[in-house]
Deep mutational scan, measured.
Amino acid sequence: MSIQHFRVALIPFFAAFCLPVFAHPETLVKVKDAEDQLGARVGYIELDLNSGKILESFRPEERFPMMSTFKVLLCGAVLSRVDAGQEQLGRRIHYSQNDLVEYSPVTEKHLTDGMTVRELCSAAITMSDNTAANLLLTTIGGPKELTAFLHNMGDHVTRLDRWEPELNEAIPNDERDTTMPAAMATTLRKLLTGELLTLASRQQLIDWMEADKVAGPLLRSALPAGWFIADKSGAGERGSRGIIAALGPDGKPSRIVVIYTTGSQATMDERNRQIAEIGASLIKHW
């Protein structure tokens, strides 16, 4: 067993022997301040990774656009098919120029040779490549099948209805392509620590998230040296922004954090800054 596999296998073990965790309302004060600064709703939840206990939450059962955070769930569904012998990570998928959609920095470079399922998941999570996500959605049967996968996990809230990039439209009061912070946090925890996926697939999923290259201005910008984070960000229309993450000190994750916002007129930089400040408060009061 590799060191990384050992780390993920012992996530519940280490967490069980940690000192009790206590909620700190100071972080919620910052979440509410972010709402004021952005002029928009902000949803927040913080779960203990081992027990699933909610440590703090704000608007945990209000719907927010998922945006690209759905790509972690998508690759979880792909990995479940791999575990069941219905898919192979090494299978190569070929596609054409007509398949390319807006923001496809990886797939646009491989029109000639195609990409493997493993490479597509890596591109979808680490670079948020939209064509990679659409190609992977095709392998599982489309958005409705991802929703069905989530329902089978016990998540009857999260739903995907459309493809990239239309799913980022974020129309107010439109339930399409949305989740709730509580539902997303619980589902992410199941994917990373539950028995739904094999140990190898859980490790692969967290490795992809740990290698995320496009979430630097968010929670990662607030992390002290030595902290662990595996995350996936999302951005959408109407001032929408979000991030889902597993993080913790001492090089291992111990909490799940989900943050979503929508309806702001603020710039992307300002949305990023507010999420980073929430992260800084979380870490300060850990």
Rank of each mutant, 00 (worst) to 15 (best):
R273M: 11
A215K: 05
S51G: 07
S281I: 13
G52V: 04
S128F: 00
E62P: 00
T107S: 07
M67W: 00
E164R: 01
A276H: 12
R271T: 10
G263D: 11
G226T: 09
V214H: 15
S201T: 10
Q88N: 15
K109N: 12
V157T: 10
R92H: 11
H24Y: 08
G114A: 08
V117C: 04
I45C: 15
F228Q: 07
E145R: 11
H285Q: 15
I278W: 02
R159Q: 14
R92P: 11
N50E: 08
N173V: 08
L55W: 09
Q274I: 14
C75S: 13
E56G: 09
Q37C: 06
S96M: 12
S68L: 00
S264W: 04
E46R: 04
P143N: 05
W163R: 10
H156P: 08
G141D: 12
K284P: 04
L49E: 03
I125S: 03
G85F: 09
R255W: 02
N173H: 11
H156Q: 09
V82L: 08
K30L: 08
M184E: 01
G234K: 00
L137A: 12
L137V: 11
P60E: 07
T107E: 01
F70Y: 13
D231L: 04
M66V: 08
R41F: 06
Q265K: 08
E35Y: 02
D33P: 00
Q265S: 08
L79G: 02
L38C: 07
R238A: 11
E56Y: 05
A133T: 08
L218R: 01
E270I: 06
P165L: 06
G43Q: 00
L197F: 14
V82H: 11
P181M: 02
G242I: 00
T112D: 11
R41H: 12
W286R: 02
W208C: 03
I229N: 00
E119N: 11
L79Y: 03
I275V: 13
F64G: 01
V72S: 11
D48S: 06
G194F: 09
I229R: 00
S80Y: 07
L120R: 02
K213G: 05
V29D: 06
L196K: 10
L136I: 13
L247Y: 04
K213R: 06
L111F: 06
A133H: 02
L111A: 06
L205I: 11
I243R: 00
A183Q: 14
V42L: 12
D250I: 07
S264P: 04
E61F: 14
H110F: 12
P172R: 08
E164M: 00
L150S: 14
L137Y: 09
R271V: 12
L73P: 13
M153Y: 07
L191E: 02
D113E: 14
L100R: 05
M115F: 04
S221R: 14
E62R: 07
N152L: 14
D174K: 03
W227L: 00
I206Y: 13
Y260T: 05
